[in-house]
C-alpha cells in the first residue's frame, strides 16, 4: 500500500480560447520496480503507478501507460489545447487499485 501519495499539478489559471498551455505534473510515489531485493535477498514486490490520464472537460489530452522504468515520484510535462473555460482532470492509477485524482480549473482571460 502506497502511503503519502500527493499529486502536484501546475496549470496556468487563465488561458485564451485555443491556446496551447504547458502542464507539469508530479506525484510522490516510491514506484517500487519489483527488481530490488531487501537485506534477506527477497524480491521487493512491484508497486507502481501504472497509468496516468489527463482530461479536459471529459476530452482526453494524454494517456500514459507506465512501466517500472519510470522514476520515483513520476513527473510529466506536456502541452494541452484549451478550447474553452473548464477543468483539467488528472488521474493516476496505482497497482494496488488506488486512484489518485487532482483537478485544476482554467478560466478564459
Amino acid at each position: 500500500m502506497a502511503v503519502g501519495v500527493k499529486p502536484r499539478v501546475k496549470v496556468p489559471k487563465t488561458a485564451s480560447a485555443g491556446e496551447v498551455i504547458t502542464i507539469k505534473t508530479l506525484i510522490s510515489h516510491k514506484m517500487e520496480s519489483g527488481q530490488r531485493k531487501d537485506k534477506e535477498g527477497n524480491l521487493i514486490p512491484r508497486s507502481i503507478i501504472n497509468r496516468f490520464v489527463c482530461d479536459f472537460n471529459g476530452q482526453n489530452v494524454v494517456d500514459v501507460k507506465m512501466e517500472p522504468a519510470i522514476s520515483t515520484n513520476p513527473y510529466f510535462q506536456f502541452e494541452a489545447t484549451v478550447p474553452e473555460a473548464g477543468e483539467f482532470q488528472f488521474t493516476w492509477y496505482d497497482d494496488d487499485g488506488s486512484v489518485y485524482e487532482e483537478a485544476k480549473s482554467v478560466a478564459m482571460g
Binding site: V20, I21, T22, D55, F56, Q59, N60, V61, V62, D63, V64, K65, M66, E67, A69, I70, S71, P74, Y75, F76, Q77, F78, E79, A80, T81, V82, P83
Partner: peptide, 18 residues
C-alpha cells in the same frame, strides 16, 4: 518504459518525463 497516447486536446506531440 512507457507509452504516451495523445488525445484530441493534446497541444503538441511533445512530452518529458524522468
Amino acid at each position: 518504459v512507457g507509452t504516451f497516447n495523445f488525445g484530441p486536446l493534446a497541444g503538441s506531440r511533445t512530452a518529458s518525463t524522468r
